[in-house]
């Protein structure tokens, strides 16, 4: 197990390196000069001396490799530079909002599992019946739903028509309900399809037939032998779903006017705050990779076959 973890950690290093190069490369090598863009936003024309001054100040005169090393070296010790708009440290801005996004992603994940797992189970147990068709249609629509639109519909229904939940903000658990449903329902579609196919596969196994043959009650067969084994592949899905949650958070936080990393990065793009965009994206990527690493380790711990296969 220790060796497996060490292996997975070692695999992470080149990926992190490449991601930092990709993020840095796209923001610096593509046409469009950050200094020029910043001044363009401020006044009609950019006076050349002001431009030169800003470039020096931002370190844009140095060779790209020097700029990259400064960025990567800083990132390694948790320094992601300074935001142009807020004039404070990017790391600080991220940490201030981190919990809002984590809270939202966790709640969304919970909703996704609470809807997705039972939906997939019912569909599998009642395979090819109308229950199956209905459950899978719901899953299908969920997986094809524009997140922002679903959020608006929930606000329209549960905030404006029934006044059950607040339409915006981040005050306590009650304001988390609608965003979490918005985020969770979309992923629930994918999860339920996976649970269904996994459960159908498990139900075709010999040990299920054996349990039935020896007279075990159907409920026990389904729960003790079917359900537990069918859930194993769902664990890996959780890591990927978390990536979906981060992506969805970008939109959901805007729909519900919640503070968070998603809204921070969108506003950073709209205000051309390059260091902030760079820092946020790198941070979110590392967060996503870490979650997937933990999930993989958990998976290997649950299913020893994975450990020895690699």
């Amino acid at each position: 197990m220790g060796r497996y973890i060490a292996n997975r950690l070692a695999q992470l290093i080149p990926v992190l390196f490449l991601i930092s190069v990709i993020v840095f490369g796209i923001l610096h090598a593509l046409p469009g000069d950050p200094a020029e863009l910043i001044l363009q936003g401020a006044e009609g024309g950019a006076p050349p001396e002001r431009l030169r001054e800003l470039k020096t100040q931002m370190g844009l005169d140095d060779p790209l490799i020097v700029q990259y090393l400064r960025f990567a070296g800083g990132a390694l010790v948790g320094d992601l530079g300074e935001s142009i708009r807020f004039r404070t440290s990017v790391t600080g801005l991220i940490l201030d909002r981190l919990w809002y996004t984590v809270e939202l992603a966790l709640a969304g994940l919970l909703v996704a599992l609470l809807i997705g797992v039972p939906l997939g189970m019912i569909a599998a147990v009642r395979q090819n019946s109308w229950v199956d068709t209905l459950a899978m249609s719901v899953a299908y629509v969920g997986a094809s739903m524009p997140v922002f639109w679903f959020g608006l519909i929930l606000i329209l229904t549960f905030s404006f028509t029934f006044s059950w939940f607040p339409p915006a903000g981040a005050d306590g658990l009650i304001s988390l309900v609608l965003p979490a449903i918005t985020l969770g329902f979309v992923s629930a579609g994918l999860i339920s399809r996976l649970v269904r196919s996994s459960m159908i596969e498990v139900l075709g196994e010999d040990y299920i037939r054996t349990s039935r043959a020896k007279g075990m009650s159907e409920r026990l067969v389904l729960w003790r032998h079917g359900f537990r084994n069918a859930l194993i592949p769902v664990v890996t899905m959780v890591g990927l779903t978390f990536g979906g949650m981060l992506a969805g958070a970008v939109v959901t936080e805007t729909v519900f006017s919640r503070p968070g990393l998603g809204r921070l990065v969108v506003s950073a793009i709209l205000t051309k705050d390059y260091p902030l965009v760079q820092g946020c994206v790198l941070f979110l990527a590392v967060l996503y990779l870490s979650v997937n690493l933990v999930v993989d380790i958990l998976y290997a711990w649950l299913d020893p076959r994975i450990r020895y296969a690699k």
Binding site: L30, L246, A247, V250, V277, A285
Partner: peptide, 25 residues
Amino acid sequence: SRFVDALLAFPSILLALVIIAALGP
């Protein structure tokens, strides 16, 4: 393959956001 793996390890929305940040909305 290494390059592709790195891109796959990266939620595509983040990649899209970086590209739009660089090119303009």
